[in-house]
Design a protein around this nucleic acid. Structure first.
Lengths: 171, 171, 171, 171
DNA sequence: AATGAATGAGACTTCATTCAT
DNA sequence: TATGAATGAAGTCTCATTCAT
């Protein structure tokens, strides 16, 4: 679904057209537009997790693991700006249900362990893991936006962002 | 304007009602709903800047300055959850014009210098100042959300978030 | 479309109701109220041209041709007062586009030749054909209005109006 | 009142502004927008009648009288296109009351006599005077429009139009 | 199962009119 | 008397959803 470009504002008519199906057909798969948005959110997160898992597979040390997750996140985001934009809008909208958010967490449970390990001795050591995750994503989203805007500087942004993350989390 | 609670989704009818005026009255002050949203965005940013300026006034060292800005940001956000929610939605929407964003920067120009000084020797030293600002806000917004959700832990979140920021930016 | 009776002032709600469809349905066929008005204008002109063509078919001499066009025009107008009223309002409104006006001319191109022949030796001989056409319509519209108001005198008005036209154009 | 340019569509706010008074002030002089439109219609007709009376004063023969009325009408119209446009829109709108139309007739009663004399032996001899008047105006309005569009040909249109009128009415 | 025309509630916006100053 | 801010009904148009085919 490349309709991500349109974001929340897209009408079901446009979504259907861009998906190559009739308007009515949409509602055979999603009872509601909100349901569709939840599925879209989930499927974008799924793509993102797949990308991160791939780059993460070979990493050995904790720092390498985190860096590979970070790089996976950023590069996927730079490559999928429409999806990122949709994700950002969906995230702040109140359309996404708690259930969907829970399902997303299930997608990549290992990430919990990593982030646990990563903060175990730093400033975040007695904060919940969710806080570290959220900070990770906040830094990554921002880095991603700058990298996407200046593609030829993407590597520099990615690297600088990672340093902020690593120093911030582990010191 | 406390209508911030409704966010982007609020209809002009609801906005007007919640402001205690007739729907037509709204359009004597804002030619368009978009214009209203831009003004709302600006005025929220203005309140936020005022809060930050107050706490910032007495700080001496750079670290104290940054910490007071950080604290000002977080505490204001925790105290104004509706405004923060509106801000987040407005920020990712494409309704806010470049002109409005420019006006917001004018609100607190000193912040540029501080962030310049703050990153001068760290990982961000050769990235544009806007990148540091955006990372600051990303960390602050996230911290704010957790602090707002668990008010009795607000101080701990604020402090932990600041450590991440300071270590990340200056090391 | 018999809604012609309402004229320009009719709201889309009334137009839809009088057409026996929902208001939204209107906008599946006409992107805009203005587009609808243009189509209405065109379709009224089309009916009118059809009426004129019918009566015109058998005429031999130039005078007979013009008279049959004239009669066709007047009788159609008397029979369709709502359409005429709509037409008059649409004509002076600035809603009708140049493109629509051009399409209308295509409806009955022969009329150009006739009017050319008709004025070739009279007062209008060195004026553009459009001027003669416009005068024809001006006289016909007025005649039509009086004929419609006093139906039992319709034939007299029609005949008197034609004499004014014929003497005026050819002498 | 030069607001004539705006026509019927003009809002009371625009009318007030263009008249140099406050919006509320308008309603101290005209109870209703419709009343204002009726007065506007009347006052435009008054200007027009004044123009016609001036040129008419010196005419001797019937033909000279009619020609001077005709010329006065056309030249006034060419000089006041905004007023003419407003007049055309007001005429076909159903806003103008019978009473206003009656008052307009009172403005220039002599015109009745002239038109009576003018048609006494022609095609219109047994039609009501109002029919002749209406035809006069229809021809004049059309002539006016062409003259206004091509000002350097105004004299030719005026003269050609008059010939159509005179031949049509008196033969 | 898939379609897409039809729907009508509701969105944003305009504007004639009122009324406190 | 003149003002202009406030009003709210009404207008045009959009869109999520339904349903006959």
């Amino acid at each position: 679904m490349v309709i991500a470009a349109q974001g929340l504002g897209a009408s079901t008519a446009m979504i259907a057209k861009s998906a190559g199906v009739a308007e009515g057909t949409l509602f055979r798969y999603f009872a509601t537009k909100d349901e569709l948005l939840n599925e879209l959110y989930f499927s974008i997160k799924q793509s993102l997790c797949d990308a991160m898992k791939t780059s993460y597979a070979q990493a050995k040390t904790l720092e390498d693991q985190v860096r590979s997750l970070w790089n996976g996140y950023i590069y996927w985001g730079v490559a999928n700006p429409a999806a990122i934009k949709a994700l950002n809008q969906l995230t702040v909208s109140d359309k996404i249900t708690a259930e969907t958010r829970a399902r997303v967490i299930e997608l990549f449970p290992e990430i919990q362990e990593i982030s646990g390990a990563c903060v175990s001795r730093g400033a975040l050591s007695d904060r919940p893991a969710a806080f570290a995750d959220a900070l990770f994503m906040a830094l990554a989203d921002t880095t991603m936006q700058f990298a996407a805007q200046e593609p030829d500087q993407a590597a520099e942004y990615t690297s600088a962002g990672f340093k902020v993350l690593w120093q911030g989390f582990t010191q």
